[in-house]
């Protein structure tokens, strides 16, 4: 079973929830995939022992100058302006390339050879309580997160419980994390911003036609509209976590929620049981 943890708004508690689920699971096979490759942070709480680090690269073009006739077919095809052609000069900006391979196909002179661009690293290991752990780390300066997220997801177990910690927002990296999950938990907080971005995230899941529910973090902040909206739209609220200074302090020290307040372990275990039905 694959459970994705996502949110529209950043900083609502995705990682807290994802780590809690992984630690509360009673299943023998539990895996946590940190798909927030731009700022992965699950390792802070799971403190994994790393087994392997693998560099992920994309194929990008390099020009074979002797063969190029400066016909511009590649430049005209490229939607990302990764190729500049002027006079008898051709330049490839490989950091702009989305690796579609179109320039290789459209070039009548076969004037491209394969080069590569490193986009990041996939780290695998074992965290607390023998949780299998996979993390993507985007290279600083790299713009393309999705191929790295796909590489992280390709390590997902076929069986057992797989928790996917998504990046915030609603664009490609999020979609690539939640797509195909059996269930998605949207973490939000009762604030106008929380509601605004929850609506966006819910819109993504409705569009994907995937089931989802809400976890309300810092649930006693007082803005009641979030729950009203959930009720009105038949979105289940699975869990409410009131604000607790102890949790915030522990979080800042890298302690998982279920260790700071142990009775949350049962609540998350119960939630997992509920979701597996």
């Amino acid at each position: 079973m694959k459970i994705a943890v996502a949110s529209g708004k950043g900083g609502t508690g995705k990682t807290t929830i994802a780590v809690s689920l992984a630690l509360a699971a009673s299943t023998a096979k539990v895996q946590l995939l940190d798909c927030d490759v731009e700022a992965p942070n699950c390792h802070i709480f799971l403190k994994p022992v790393v087994d392997e680090e693998e560099v992920v690269s994309l194929d990008v073009p390099a020009v074979i100058e002797q063969k190029c006739t400066y016909c511009k077919k590649c430049k005209e095809l490229c939607q990302f302006n990764a190729i500049a052609v002027f006079g008898k000069t051709i330049m490839v900006f490989k950091e702009m390339c989305h690796s579609c391979g179109g320039c290789f196909l459209v070039c009548p002179e076969e004037a491209f050879s394969r080069d590569s661009r490193e986009i990041g690293t996939v780290v695998t290991g074992k965290g607390k309580g023998s949780i299998k752990f996979v993390q993507g780390r985007l290279r600083v300066g790299e713009a393309l997160a999705t191929p790295l997220i796909k590489a992280v997801r390709s390590r997902a177990l076929e069986d057992g419980l797989v928790i996917l910690d998504a990046p915030p927002g609603t664009s490609c990296p999020v979609i690539n994390t939640v797509r195909g999950a059996d269930y998605t938990l949207l973490v939000t907080e009762p604030t106008p911003f929380g509601l605004h971005d929850l609506k966006l995230a819910a819109g993504v899941l409705w569009k994907l036609e995937q089931p989802f529910g809400v976890i309300l973090n810092r649930s006693d902040l007082g803005y009641g509209e979030v729950e009203k909206w959930c009720n009105k739209n038949n979105v289940p609220v699975h869990l409410k976590i009131p604000f607790d200074r102890k949790v915030a302090e522990g979080y800042a020290k890298g302690q998982p929620l279920v260790e700071i307040v142990p009775n949350y372990r049962d609540r998350f275990a119960f939630l997992l049981k509920e979701l597996s039905k």
Binding site: G8, G10, E38, P168, G169, T170, S171, F193
Partner: peptide
């Protein structure tokens, strides 16, 4: 365009990369 995102305070709807302060992109 359209991938900006405010961290914490802002709601993730920034437009363009230099939109919302130092928000990470989605």
């Amino acid at each position: 365009a359209g991938f900006g995102r405010g961290r914490g305070g802002g709601g993730g709807m920034g437009r363009g990369r230099r939109g919302l302060g130092r928000g990470r992109r989605q």
